[in-house]
Nucleic acid binder design. Sequence first.
DNA 1: TGTTCATATGAATATTTGTTCATGTGAACG
DNA 2: CGTTCACATGAACAAATATTCATATGAACA
Lengths: 105, 105
Amino acid sequence: MKNNLFAPSQEQTERIGNFFRVMGDPTRLKILTVLLNGKMCVMHISQAVGMSQSAVSHQLAILRRANLVCVSRSGKSQVYAIADEHVRLILDMALLHSAEHEEEL
Amino acid sequence: MKNNLFAPSQEQTERIGNFFRVMGDPTRLKILTVLLNGKMCVMHISQAVGMSQSAVSHQLAILRRANLVCVSRSGKSQVYAIADEHVRLILDMALLHSAEHEEEL
DNA sequence: TGTTCATATGAATATTTGTTCATGTGAACG
DNA sequence: CGTTCACATGAACAAATATTCATATGAACA
């Protein structure tokens, strides 16, 4: 009800919006929850989430750019992992919270 | 690297995915940050975010269904507000975090 | 170093999601 | 109680995003 409102910078809003948006896609979220179990190569991830290698690879690229996962090579495979404990924490929190609010939505 | 993976229930994944997705839209995020300033009616919100009344109303409906905002009537106006402190907290945390990581993304 | 295997990627298509436009609805206030 | 004002909503359209398909890439290992 004021004349000048608090507002985060547009850049800031875009950044957190982007973060939420990346987390908000079903396929990416499945990938992330699968990776909570530990490092995994692309083939196994795509089996675990039941999607094509290509689709998974495209989404992994998005997760990489958003710094939510990181990659390393092991033999012939690219091994993906949750980028850091911070991401793991957010996922855990969201899962916990959702368990508390089963009636909502 | 195991045979049976930890996996949240599909319902759980959908719920948190939905939460993140709702937060991830630029218009909705603008609306929410505007509402951090306090309760506001639809007309004022649409002025504050610079979008049509209809577009804002559609997005408010989504925010309502996701329990991120709540409504009450005041005279002829519907007054919207952040649903609870929990939502406020998440927004604050995300804004803080984004300020700390300006170089990422 | 040539071949293979795992993954990445570009382009086309499919799908989802947001906005607009026109109009409906319902509470308020005369 | 009818009109008006503020908002909601359905359908059509537009824009963004995900998936598929075909193919490129590039490290590993013979």
